[in-house]
């Protein structure tokens, strides 16, 4: 039974293909890692008020992730959320699938050029401040699939990455270590400025 579709599949495919080709052309250089807090850019003489330190504490312990599980690493991420390794105790109980409600993008798994377009779109839809954690070697460099015609050789070609977690897949403890590093980074943003 043929149904009249309210859209043209070939038109949508053509538009998607054009977006992918455009993104491939624009992603030749990696984004620099956001490490300005290390360089001392924030070393200003600002006295940290109680409110600011409270806000820091809240920001650090309530980062809401958007789990961007793409492939195998996603199941170690789910394992980290499950009861044995329990990411909830780090304040990440709420995993929001809507980018408007999340501030941490946890990319777990191989990124292909076809998926890079939605990933960039979702990253752009997240509100500042936002962070990105690259989980697994596939997001760091393409991993086992480096050299393939359809795999992005590194997440930092598409979005700036804050924490890289190596492993194939990293154990849930590895993910937790990465998350604690991220929390330190989130809080240190203001901590450096205190001096």
């Amino acid at each position: 039974m043929e149904v009249e579709r309210p859209y043209s599949a070939s038109e949508l495919d053509r538009i998607e293909g054009a977006e992918i080709q455009a993104l491939m052309a624009a992603s030749k250089e990696p984004y620099p890692d956001p490490v300005d807090w290390l360089e001392g850019e924030g070393r200003r003489n600002v006295i940290l008020t109680t409110t600011e330190s409270l806000v820091d504490w809240c920001k650090r312990y309530s980062t809401w992730p958007i789990p961007f599980g793409l492939a195998c690493c996603a199941f170690e991420m789910v394992g980290a959320f499950a009861s044995r390794f329990d990411l909830t105790r780090f304040g990440m109980d709420v995993f929001r699938f809507s980018p408007r409600q999340a501030d941490l993008m946890l990319v777990a798994g191989t990124l292909t050029w076809k998926m890079a377009v939605p990933l960039r779109r979702i990253y752009d839809q997240m509100a500042e401040p936002k962070w990105v954690v690259a989980m697994g070697t596939c997001t760091i460099s393409g991993g086992a699939f480096r050299g393939s015609y359809s795999v992005v050789p590194g997440l930092n070609l598409i979005v700036p990455v804050d924490v890289y977690i190596p492993g194939c897949p990293p154990r849930p403890e590895g993910l937790i270590h990465g998350i604690t590093l991220l929390h330190a980074k989130v809080a240190r943003d203001k901590l450096i400025k205190k001096e």
Partner: peptide
């Protein structure tokens, strides 16, 4: 195709 990694190639 969002996870097509080209394993066969």
């Amino acid at each position: 195709g969002y996870l097509h990694r080209g394993i066969e190639k």
